Computed example of a mutant assay.
Amino acid sequence: MKYEAIVIGTSAGGLDAVKTLCAHLPADFSVPIAAVLHLHRNTKDDLITLLNREIRLTVKYAEDKEQIQKGCLFIAPPDYHLLIEDDRTFSLSVDEPVNYSRPSIDVLFESAADVFREHIIGIILTGANKDGSLGLRRIKERGGTTIVENPRTAQYSEMPLAAIAEVEVDYILDINEITNKVMELLLRSKCKTS
């Protein structure tokens, strides 16, 4: 089984968590990553500039109809839901907020789970609401791998706790352990397929 995508969801404290998670990933990282951070609708491009300075992956806002590609961290643009279509492209939506959020983690995770099924890793990081727990459950139901930041060490514990209450999570890890676990999972899946 080969992993084909990683999805990340985070809210309060999430920028630092994403930087920590992605800091040691190589520029040619073999699996595309899509992330929802709960951004204010007026968030500027400074966020993308900052992340591009801090990590080696190419960081950009996902665009409608854009093909998912490796070596990139795609961020849901402010005030748009981000979905993954069957043809492995992104779509953007201005449908009503979900869990008071647009973009919503659940929206991305549920669409990604339906496309990638057991070939996806879903990660919930720090946050102060419950968005993402239902999407993570969908990933688990479709056979994907689920990781949640340890609520005891997360900057905000509510989102990790909600995910753990909703899903029998595969791994609960401190933020600085998650990258190593992801690399280990990818290496293990690569060995099994070669």
Rank of each mutant, 00 (worst) to 15 (best):
M1A: 10
K2M: 13
Y3M: 06
A5F: 12
A5G: 06
A5H: 10
I8F: 01
G9M: 11
T10Y: 11
T10S: 15
T10R: 03
A12R: 12
G14V: 00
D16Y: 11
A17E: 04
A17D: 03
A17I: 02
V18Y: 09
V18K: 02
T20H: 10
A23V: 07
A23K: 14
L25Q: 06
P26D: 11
F29H: 13
V31H: 00
P32D: 13
V36P: 12
L37H: 13
L39I: 14
H40P: 11
T43G: 00
K44W: 03
D45L: 07
T49W: 07
L51V: 02
R53N: 11
R53S: 10
R53M: 07
R53H: 10
E54G: 01
T58I: 14
K60L: 15
K60G: 06
K60N: 12
A62D: 05
E63L: 15
E63P: 04
E63D: 13
D64P: 02
D64R: 12
K65L: 05
E66S: 08
I68W: 00
K70F: 01
L73H: 07
L73E: 08
I75T: 13
P78I: 01
D79A: 09
D79V: 01
L82M: 11
L83M: 13
E85W: 00
E85F: 04
D86H: 11
D87Q: 08
D87W: 08
F90Y: 15
F90K: 14
S93Q: 07
D95I: 05
E96P: 03
V98E: 14
S101Q: 14
P103G: 00
I105S: 02
I105Q: 03
D106A: 03
D106C: 04
V107E: 02
V107W: 03
V107I: 09
L108S: 02
S111L: 05
A112H: 06
A112G: 06
A113Q: 02
A113R: 05
V115T: 15
F116N: 03
R117S: 08
R117I: 07
L125C: 06
T126F: 03
G127A: 04
A128L: 08
K130I: 07
D131V: 07
G132F: 01
L134Y: 09
R137K: 15
R138A: 10
I139S: 10
K140V: 04
K140G: 04
E141V: 02
E141K: 14
R142P: 02
G143A: 05
T145L: 12
T146G: 02
T146C: 03
V148P: 10
N150P: 13
R152P: 00
T153P: 14
A154P: 12
A154D: 05
Y156G: 00
Y156S: 10
S157A: 15
S157W: 10
E158Y: 09
E158T: 15
M159D: 01
P160Q: 03
L161D: 14
A162L: 05
A165W: 04
V167I: 15
E168G: 04
V169T: 12
D170H: 10
Y171M: 04
Y171R: 04
I172T: 14
L173T: 09
L173A: 06
L173I: 10
I175R: 12
N176F: 12
N176A: 03
I178L: 12
K181G: 07
M183T: 08
L185T: 06
L186M: 11
R188N: 08
S189H: 08
K192D: 10
K192H: 04
T193Q: 09
T193N: 08
